[in-house]
């Protein structure tokens, strides 16, 4: 009897119609696709993307060339040269990050005593020639200037958990 029922079911294509009903329903379902350049997936405030160097509100750069980030960097991606400025403070003359070496671990940000080097949420960047992967102090400061609002907001959002 059971075998007969199965035979009838297969002859009437019952299971095939069930499958068709499923895909037919999904045809009208809401689509999960994120249309990338126009839409983005949400990012955590802890997201570790492109680096930036921050400034104080008065425009003074935060970095004091303590070289802790250079020392802690596991990939040896950071190169720093420093000298004394006219006002007697120690400042960097060179702050290069090799983005091919960088593993985006965020240890430089952890090490920094003045919150100068940070990892932002920027992910859309690319290089077209050899050598372009070295981001210099000027470029990093420019990113910091352009995205300061977002960087500060991300830091503030994460502050209660630190």
């Amino acid at each position: 009897m059971h075998a007969l029922g199965r035979w009838v079911r297969s002859l009437l294509l019952v299971e095939l119609f069930e499958g068709l009903a499923l895909t037919g329903r999904l045809f009208f379902a809401h689509k999960f696709t994120i249309r990338y350049p126009e839409e983005h997936t949400p990012k955590s405030p802890r997201y570790r993307g492109l680096h930036a160097l921050r400034r104080y509100a008065n425009g003074e750069e935060r970095c004091i060339a303590c070289k802790l980030c250079e020392a802690v960097c596991p990939a040896l991606a950071i190169t720093i040269d420093s000298e004394m400025r006219e006002d007697g403070t120690r400042r960097t003359t060179r702050y290069d990050i090799d983005l091919f070496k960088c593993v985006y671990c965020g240890l430089c940000e952890e090490a920094c005593p003045v919150d100068s080097i940070v990892l932002t949420a920027i992910t859309d960047f690319h290089f077209e020639k050899r050598g372009e992967q070295i981001y210099t102090k000027e470029m990093l400061l420019a990113f910091g200037d352009n995205y300061e609002a977002q960087i500060a907001a991300d830091r503030a959002a994460d502050a209660p958990y630190r």
Partner: peptide, 10 residues
């Protein structure tokens, strides 16, 4: 398009 829609994508 149709197969995409049935697989819940665009």
């Amino acid at each position: 398009r149709v197969i995409g829609f049935m697989q819940v994508r665009m």
